[in-house]
C-alpha cells in the first residue's frame, strides 16, 4: 500500500512530512504565488512549501482558490 492509496480521511489525519509554510507565511506569500501561477511560472520553485500547506490547510486552500479566481476574472473584464 502506498501513501497514494490511503483513505482520504487517513490522509488528512496523517498529513505529509513535506516541508510546508504555516498559515501566516502562506498569507504573506500568497499574492506573489498566485501571480506566478497565472503567469505560467514555476510558482512552487519560487515559493517552496506553500503548495504543501494548501494541501494540509483547507482554509488557506480556499483563499488561494479565491484569489486566483478573482485575478482570472479581472483579466477577463
Amino acid at each position: 500500500m502506498t501513501g497514494r492509496d490511503l483513505d482520504p480521511t487517513l490522509l488528512r489525519l496523517l498529513g505529509s512530512d513535506e516541508p510546508e509554510l504555516d498559515c501566516d507565511e502562506c498569507f504573506t506569500q500568497l499574492d506573489r504565488y498566485v501571480e506566478l501561477e497565472l503567469a505560467g511560472a514555476p510558482a512552487d520553485a519560487f515559493v517552496p512549501g506553500l503548495r504543501a500547506h494548501l494541501v494540509g490547510c483547507p482554509a488557506c486552500a480556499e483563499e488561494h482558490e479565491s484569489l486566483r479566481a478573482l485575478l482570472e476574472l479581472d483579466s477577463v473584464a
Binding site: D31, R32, V34, E62, S66, L67
Partner: peptide, 18 residues
C-alpha cells in the same frame, strides 16, 4: 512589490470575508 498592489490588497479582503 513582489506582486501588484491590487493583488496584495485583495488577499486581505478575501481573508476577512472568508
Amino acid at each position: 512589490g513582489e506582486s501588484s498592489f491590487r493583488t496584495w490588497a485583495y488577499k486581505f479582503a478575501l481573508l476577512e470575508a472568508a
